[in-house]
Amino acid sequence: MARKCENCDIMEKYKYWNELPATEHSFFKVMPDDFDRQLLIPKKFSECFKEKLCGWCILVGPSGKKWRVRVSTAKQNSGRVMFSNDGWPSFVRDHGIQFRDFVTFHYIGSSSFKVSIFDASGCEREESYFAKTGYKSQSNLGNSVEEISSNSRGKKKRSVSFDEYDEDDYMSEDYKDESDGESSVFNQFGRLSSSSLSKSTRAKLSQMYYESNRRTVSEAEMQIAIQKAEKHKRRRTKFPLFPIIMKRTYVYRGFNFTIPKKWAMQHMLRKPHQIELRVPKKRESWMVGCRWTRSQQCQLRKNWPQFVLENNLEEHDVCVFELISKDEVESKATIVVYIYRVVDDVVPLTVSRRMV
């Protein structure tokens, strides 16, 4: 068997995780000793999967019924992502899952996995098709973030949600590699200095995987950024706006940025057009291409990676997009982007040839 070149192997891995639809991705687990309390998700899957695994997810059993399970970080396993004891034990009990059972998880979109369960015989567990417990579909599942607010008697938690701009209302289309070459994409890596790169080089680097060098951020810091965006959203303004939390696939790889569908249908020009993005207190602006897909998704594509890199956007930062003008004749719009960072100190990203 001929040995593949290193770049070919990297490219194949990149295309698998970034160009294939998320609904093509699966993982399996052989149930370990402590499987009935919590279950670690494979590290490679949680790191490479282009949909963010956090908050709540839905597990759809063989019966078609749904179980609500919290996804959290395991403190004793180097921050590994896992199905926690908030929901997972019920799923195990209701399906009769046993030690060393082989369980597959196939992503089906909207933070949901279709689950199949196999016993030691190599066949599916019959009883799993007749599990009767589950939950009735709820709105806003997993889209709220706990905000800590203080009062005279101490601290309490309340739910903060960008319900009006619910990200479950849309799904990003698969990322298409629009570069004019493949192997040359991998020739540069290291510290990013986007202002020193040529236009063609920036376009190629935008196809790569970027790694954050920012320090670890806390839940409290994430909540503060959300609170600032919420406060901005409540301001009186004559311009339509929407807040959105930056995901890995918006700012580190793929650069799939889709405007919330309900908002886009109401406010955006319904044709391909250019958007001038402005950032307060900055003289320069960025012309970004906007397009509508066949599934009626409004996406920022051309030059969006440059906007991200030159403004040092990172995962969990919250941006408020405010549409201040649009011109049907000239096919142009202007949006001011207010950036609420989780960490104020900006540290350049690293461009890596590690795709997985």
Rank of each mutant, 00 (worst) to 15 (best):
S172R: 12
S198W: 04
E211Y: 08
E211S: 08
G87F: 05
D119Y: 10
D317T: 07
P89G: 04
F35M: 02
I148H: 12
S295L: 09
Y129W: 07
E230T: 13
N140G: 12
A120R: 09
W56K: 01
L39V: 03
R278P: 02
M171D: 11
Y209N: 15
G154H: 06
Q297S: 12
Q274V: 07
K29M: 03
Y16N: 04
F83M: 01
L53G: 00
Q306Y: 09
E328N: 14
E12T: 12
R100N: 08
D177P: 07
Y175L: 06
P260S: 06
M287R: 13
C5P: 12
S137F: 10
M246S: 03
I58E: 01
R354A: 13
E24R: 10
F35E: 00
C8Q: 14
I97C: 01
G254Q: 00
Y340N: 02
E51N: 10
K228S: 05
C54H: 09
Y14W: 08
R80Y: 13
C319I: 11
V342T: 02
C48T: 05
W17C: 00
I224D: 11
E19D: 06
S352M: 04
D177F: 07
N213F: 08
N256P: 07
E322K: 08
Q207W: 06
I224Q: 14
F242V: 03
Q274H: 05
S149H: 13
S112N: 03
S72H: 00
K155M: 11
H316A: 15
R68M: 08
N7L: 15
G142N: 03
D177N: 14
E315M: 11
D345S: 12
E314Y: 12
V343H: 10
D86F: 12
T350D: 06
K132R: 11
S195K: 10
S206T: 02
R214A: 15
G109D: 04
Y129V: 05
S206Y: 03
W286R: 02
D33W: 08
S295T: 12
V69D: 00
D344S: 08
K176A: 15
K44L: 10
D327A: 04
Y107S: 04
Y165F: 14
K233F: 15
A264L: 02
A229Y: 06
D86Y: 14
Q38L: 05
E322M: 10
D166M: 04
P348C: 00
F113L: 01
H273P: 06
H267S: 07
Q227H: 13
S72D: 01
S193G: 09
K231A: 13
G254E: 02
L277N: 00
I275H: 02
E126L: 10
Y14K: 07
I10N: 06
I245E: 06
S116V: 10
L192K: 07
Y340R: 00
K114Q: 05
V103M: 01
V347E: 05
R353S: 09
H316Q: 13
R294C: 05
T334I: 10
S179P: 00
D101I: 03
W304S: 05
V329A: 13
T133E: 15
R158C: 07
I335N: 01
E315A: 10
I226W: 05
K332W: 04
S110V: 09
N7C: 14
G154L: 04
S128E: 01
Q274E: 07
K228W: 06
N312S: 14
N7D: 15
R68N: 07
